[in-house]
Design a protein around this nucleic acid. Structure first.
Length: 677
DNA sequence: AAAAAAT
């Protein structure tokens, strides 16, 4: 424990806590708390005041309130921000760069024999406006299409189309760690060394100016043919992290030739995409597809999307027009493979977004089926990229099955939540949650508020309650129809329903500008879910607030929550510390997963398990140290994870130190998770 | 125990 304390001290974290139970809102002037039994009267007043409803009406979303490409809600843009600094036209004037591998000189691709008209994405129709071709070994971008351009990139008046902002200069301070063999040097700009020129024009249209840290590394890593496991904090540009390099390569190299014997398209309608992106929810898949359309604009690359709950015939039509880059949820993809409409034989890039989620118990069999059970090229014949904000140790071990000699990239603080998010935790008993929520919504006007609950039923109940309270709320969860889900998201995005009650379906990856507040009405039992949830705000360099309702029912995550708050330089309420003490060392509730970290959450966000107490185990003796029972909050191979934090000696390793920097000191971290209660 | 993902 002394070591843990010392570590915290090293981080320069103060002990400052504030008293629980007297919470403040963002502006520090929340209305006095009204107990539930008095609430009815207040409601009556509230409802009768017609002005109150108007007060909660959709906040204004207009040009005056958001600068182009930098859709900041709370703070008005400065004049400087409202004028996009265009990149100079001299892309080509970028400094020279000596490629360590195949950067500048991509292997020339054989042209398709059938290709008299030029490759148009393997489709059967003509090239549509806004699409390009590959002809005579050259990329021939299509002509600009103003209407499509507006649809894809939005306008100044439509911030709901503006996704990630451009406050990337703030990212320069973010620590980046890359481990693995022969890590390529990071790029310093999109133009240095340059991405494909056509991609640069699209990046410019999207108002991206600088690569984020994860992009600076992922671009050369992919260009050098390496596999990647990237752990980057929420809102730090992971989507661009894989889209930019794979599209740049595609634009430079052109379509790959199908292996002999495969049908080339005439006759049977079977798509052979070269890139496959898998993600855990339909909405996230849809969002990635929208991004892919932007950056593939006017190019020969045709992006496609498939997911369940939506009309399959329109998805099939899209595929038939040509399918080079496919974004999919697992179930629908398997369906289409079984129908013989998609082949994975031509895959060069496999991307798992939210990879830890894709490889957890619920999804892993489907992923294994797609990656190992179909006609996907083997691990050595493709490039595999995995991205997430969190990457628990055991999932990292699982992920090895799909990767070859990969580079592990860690972007951001150890805990991987952004410091742009102000995290609050309030002590609220279950029966008081509605009241406190109303107070919060009352006080927090002018942005979008995303409220997370644990169950679909609760999502329905709570959104109905809020509607009755005249808050324009809606809900999203897996029991709603896809149409309802998409409508709810759209209402939320556009601000017509600035309050969205959501289950875990909305926890990951969704990039919704202007979400200024995330409320964990119910805390998740997995702290990584908390990390992803609050990551819906404070994106792309903007700031956000998160509020969690905590009571003794959540003591299972108290230790991990405290650690997380400390790591993110947030205040830790006194009641959390005391509940943690009450719960003693048994607070963890799930010693298993965190193993490597020894603090329960196991530095799930940011440590390459190969370096920090990883390996295939076996080295070193028993856990020792803090090992204790599997569900102890100090479980695992002891202290700071068997491995050394700084290499060399046992470091923080606790344990018995016998295995120095490697080996996990036995299996302590893999005890069965404690029961749920 | 819950959510998500094919029909």
């Amino acid at each position: 424990m002394a070591e843990l304390t010392a570590r915290m001290g090293n981080l320069g974290l103060g002990d400052s806590v504030h008293a629980g139970g007297a919470p403040n809102n963002a502006s520090g002037q929340r209305a006095a708390y009204i107990p539930p039994h008095l609430r009815a009267k207040m409601q009556a007043q509230h409802a009768s005041a017609s002005g109150a409803a108007a007060q909660h009406a959709a906040p204004p979303i207009n040009a005056a309130n958001s600068s182009i490409g930098n859709s900041r809600w709370a703070s008005a843009p400065t004049p400087a921000e409202s004028h996009i600094q265009r990149q100079p036209n001299g892309w080509a004037a970028a400094p020279t760069f000596t490629p360590s591998n195949n950067w500048e000189n991509p292997e020339p691709r054989p042209q398709r024999s059938m290709d008299n008209q030029g490759y148009n994405g393997g489709g059967y129709g003509r090239t549509a406006p806004g699409e390009g071709t590959w002809r005579d070994g050259k990329h021939v971008p299509g002509p600009p299409n103003p209407r499509l351009e507006r649809e894809l990139f939005g306008t100044a008046n439509d911030p709901s189309k503006q996704t990630t902002g451009i406050n990337f200069e703030k990212y320069d301070d973010i620590p980046v760690e890359a481990s693995g063999t022969d890590v390529p040097e990071a790029v310093i700009a999109f133009t240095s060394p340059p991405l494909d020129p056509h991609l640069l024009t699209n990046i410019e249209l999207a108002h991206y100016k600088q690569p984020t840290p994860v992009q600076k590394y992922s671009i050369p890593i992919v260009a050098n043919g390496r596999d990647l496991m990237a752990c980057a904090q929420t809102g730090s540009g992971k989507t661009g992290g894989f889209l930019f390099p794979i599209l740049s390569q595609a634009f430079k190299q052109g379509p790959s030739l199908l292996p002999a014997g495969q049908n080339q398209g005439f006759g049977r309608k079977k798509a052979h995409p070269t890139s496959l992106i898998l993600a855990p929810t339909r909405e996230l898949v849809s969002q990635i597809y929208d991004e892919a359309r932007k950056f593939a604009y006017r190019s020969w690359v045709k992006p496609c999307v498939v997911y369940g709950g939506a009309d399959i015939t329109s998805q099939l039509r899209l595929i038939e027009r040509g399918c080079d880059l496919l974004v999919a949820t697992p179930g629908r993809l398997v369906d289409l493979i079984e129908r013989g409409r998609i082949s994975l034989a031509n895959i060069k890039y496999l991307i798992l977004d939210e990879a830890d989620r894709m490889l957890d118990m619920g999804f892993e069999p489907q992923i294994r089926r797609i990656v190992e059970g179909e006609d996907m090229p083997g691990v050595h014949s493709r490039q595999t990229l995995m991205f997430s904000a969190t990457f628990p140790r055991d999932i990292q071990m699982l992920a090895r099955d799909f990767l070859k000699d990969y580079i592990f990239l860690s972007v951001g603080r150890v805990g991987s939540t952004s410091e742009n998010i102000t995290q609050k935790v309030e002590y609220v008993e279950d029966q008081d949650k509605r009241s406190v929520l109303l107070d919060i919504l009352q006080a927090h006007q002018g942005g979008l508020t995303l409220i997370f609950v644990e169950t679909k039923r609760m999502a329905d109940n709570l959104s109905e309650f809020l509607l009755n309270q005249k808050f324009p709320a809606t809900s999203i969860h897996g029991d709603r129809t896809q149409r309802e889900r998409e409508r709810a998201l759209e209402m939320f995005r556009t601000g017509r329903c600035p309050v969205l009650v959501a289950t875990a379906v909305a926890a990951r990856g969704l990039d919704i500008p202007n979400v200024t507040h995330v409320v964990n009405y119910d805390l998740p039992t997995d702290i990584d879910d908390y990390v992803h949830r609050i990551g819906r705000t404070g994106r792309a360099g903007n700031v956000g607030i998160s509020t969690a309702f905590f009571n003794r029912g959540n003591r299972g995550v108290v230790r991990e929550l405290i650690d997380l708050l400390k790591e993110a330089n947030q205040e830790v309420p006194a009641f959390l510390e005391s509940i943690a003490r009450e719960s003693g060392g048994m607070g963890g509730g799930r010693g298993g997963r965190g193993g490597g970290g020894g603090r329960g959450r196991g530095q799930s966000g940011a440590k390459d398990f190969r370096r920090y107490g990883g390996g295939s185990g076996g080295l070193g003796g028993s856990g020792g140290g803090f090992g204790g029972p599997p569900n102890s909050s100090f479980s695992g191979p002891g202290g700071y994870g068997g491995g050394s934090y700084s290499g060399g000696s046992a470091g923080y390793g606790g344990g018995n130190g016998s295995n120095g920097g490697y080996g996990n000191g036995g299996n302590g971290g893999y005890g069965n998770p404690a029961s749920w209660w």
